[in-house]
Computed example of a mutant assay.
Amino acid sequence: MGLIIACEILFWVLVFSGLACRYLWKQTKLSNLLLLLTPLVDLVLLAATIVSLRGGAEATLAHAMAAVYIGVSIGYGHRMISTADTWFSFRFAGGPKPRKKFGKEHARHERSGWLFHALSWAIGCALLYGMVLIVGDASQTEALVQTIRIWSIILVIDFIISFSYTLWPRHEKKISV
């Protein structure tokens, strides 16, 4: 579990360091390098998880969370970095303030967010099933299978919420004087 937490922290350290280099210190090349290093964090985590399982470790929630983290990082990674970039630009470089989305634009954003979630789920579940195959013993992989079940339920709930905005779009609140 410690390695997963370390990888998550390292991911965000690389993102914010890259953005700080870009906007605070005007070091575009270093910024790009730091942001390009973020996928390496995923590879390190994947390698460590595989080594652990191949070494005979029982599959635990930590292994399951590694697969979830990698799925989310790949599925949402670009979107998360882009959102952080927009806010960082606004806060530290005089960029435009990110605006809230309403109506059809918000509904489209929520639907696309669900598609990123579905992609993350597919990648994460493929990794979880791969771990089940690596271990090869159903009694030792219950945490992995349970994670797939729970994540699948969450994906369905997210679908209902995300697509509900198509029928009932979010409207801008009017301030009455």
Rank of each mutant, 00 (worst) to 15 (best):
I123L: 12
T83M: 10
G130F: 11
A84S: 11
L40G: 15
E105G: 07
V177G: 04
M1E: 12
T141F: 04
K100M: 12
L119Y: 09
A126M: 13
H171V: 10
W114R: 09
D158C: 01
S82P: 00
N32S: 08
F116C: 11
M65G: 00
A62H: 08
L30H: 05
A64R: 02
R99Y: 07
L133P: 01
R54S: 12
T49K: 02
G75S: 07
L133M: 10
L61S: 10
K104L: 13
G136A: 04
Q146A: 14
G124I: 01
S31K: 03
W121H: 12
I150L: 15
W114C: 07
F92M: 06
D158A: 13
H78F: 12
T49P: 02
G103I: 09
I81N: 05
C125K: 04
F116V: 02
E105T: 13
I74D: 02
W114V: 06
F88W: 08
S89T: 00
H78G: 01
V72P: 02
T166Q: 13
H109R: 05
W168C: 06
F159D: 07
V13P: 07
G2K: 13
K101P: 01
G55L: 02
E110N: 15
A47N: 09
G71M: 06
V145M: 11
Q146R: 14
A47S: 09
L144Y: 08
R170C: 03
L43R: 06
A67I: 04
I134E: 08
S162K: 11
A93H: 14
L37G: 06
M80W: 09
R149L: 08
A138G: 13
D158K: 06
S52A: 13
K173M: 09
A107H: 13
A84F: 00
L46M: 12
S89M: 01
G124L: 01
L46R: 05
F163H: 14
L36G: 15
S17L: 14
I154E: 06
I175Q: 11
F90N: 01
H109K: 05
K97Y: 04
Y76G: 00
I160V: 15
W151V: 02
V15A: 09
G56S: 03
V68R: 00
I4L: 11
S73C: 04
K29E: 05
L24R: 15
L35E: 04
A107M: 10
G55Y: 10
W168Y: 14
Y23Q: 01
S82I: 00
A57H: 10
G75E: 07
A143C: 02
W151T: 10
F163V: 05
L36P: 00
F92K: 06
K101T: 09
I5G: 14
K173D: 10
L53E: 05
L14A: 03
D137F: 07
V145I: 14
G2F: 14
I9A: 15
I9C: 09
R91C: 02
T49E: 03
L61G: 10
A20I: 01
I5R: 12
T141S: 08
A59E: 03
A6F: 10
T38D: 01
A59V: 03
F116H: 15
L24N: 12
G77E: 05
G94A: 07
I81Q: 10
F90H: 13
L35G: 08
K26A: 10
H106Q: 11
L36H: 12
K100Y: 13
T166F: 12
L30R: 10
W151I: 01
T38G: 00
Q27W: 11
K29Q: 08
I81S: 03
V156I: 15
